[in-house]
Computed example of a mutant assay.
Amino acid sequence: MNGYQISFYMQQNDRHDGHALCDWLVKLAGELELRGVTVIAGTEGIGHDGRLHSAHFFELGDQPVKVMMAVNEEQSDKLFARLKGEKLRLFYIKAPVEFGVVGED
């Protein structure tokens, strides 16, 4: 199947609608019936703001987080329409990919 790999980048302490943004995105993906959504916590990174963000022993709020998903074009359109309606400011990468499942159930 052809579609997109979409990766959203944020910090652990970013929030939306009273919830951690990464958790909110996973919940939204569930509502939109998207599958294959993964949250990946990073050790450190430089954000689009030019600042170093990292996980510290006592403070994980600045830890970089990526929410990644593989979607078809229709799912991508629904996702971005919903995000636009939420008025979020959220950095993402959207790349065309081929995806599928190998093997039997």
Rank of each mutant, 00 (worst) to 15 (best):
M1N: 06
M1F: 04
M1D: 00
G3P: 06
Y4P: 01
Y4C: 00
I6K: 06
F8M: 02
F8L: 07
M10W: 03
M10T: 06
Q12M: 11
N13F: 06
N13T: 06
R15V: 08
R15P: 00
H16K: 10
G18T: 13
H19D: 09
A20E: 05
L21Q: 09
C22V: 05
W24S: 10
L25P: 03
V26G: 08
K27F: 04
L28A: 05
L28H: 02
G30F: 03
G30L: 02
G30C: 08
E31Q: 09
E33R: 15
E33C: 15
L34H: 09
L34Q: 04
L34W: 04
R35I: 02
R35Q: 09
R35A: 10
G36K: 12
V39N: 04
V39Y: 05
V39F: 06
I40D: 07
A41S: 07
A41R: 10
G42T: 10
E44V: 02
I46K: 08
I46Q: 07
I46H: 05
I46P: 01
G47V: 05
G47N: 04
G47S: 07
H48P: 13
H48K: 03
D49K: 11
D49W: 05
D49F: 02
D49A: 08
G50F: 02
L52F: 08
L52H: 09
H56M: 13
F57Y: 08
F57A: 14
F57E: 15
F57M: 11
F58R: 15
F58I: 08
E59M: 05
E59T: 05
L60S: 12
D62Q: 14
D62I: 03
Q63H: 01
Q63Y: 01
Q63P: 04
Q63L: 04
K66T: 14
K66V: 12
V67Q: 11
V67T: 12
M68A: 12
M68L: 13
M69L: 15
A70N: 05
A70F: 01
A70T: 09
V71F: 03
E73Y: 00
E73N: 05
E74P: 01
Q75A: 05
Q75P: 00
S76V: 03
D77Y: 06
D77L: 08
D77M: 07
K78W: 04
L79E: 00
F80W: 12
R82C: 09
L83E: 03
K84S: 00
G85V: 10
G85L: 12
G85T: 08
E86A: 14
E86N: 03
E86T: 00
L88H: 11
R89P: 05
L90W: 07
L90K: 12
F91A: 15
F91N: 09
F91Q: 12
Y92C: 09
I93E: 15
K94H: 03
K94S: 08
A95N: 14
A95F: 09
P96M: 04
V97L: 06
V97M: 07
E98L: 09
F99Y: 14
F99K: 02
F99V: 00
V101H: 13
V102L: 15
V102H: 13
G103P: 03
G103L: 04
G103A: 07
G103C: 04
D105N: 10
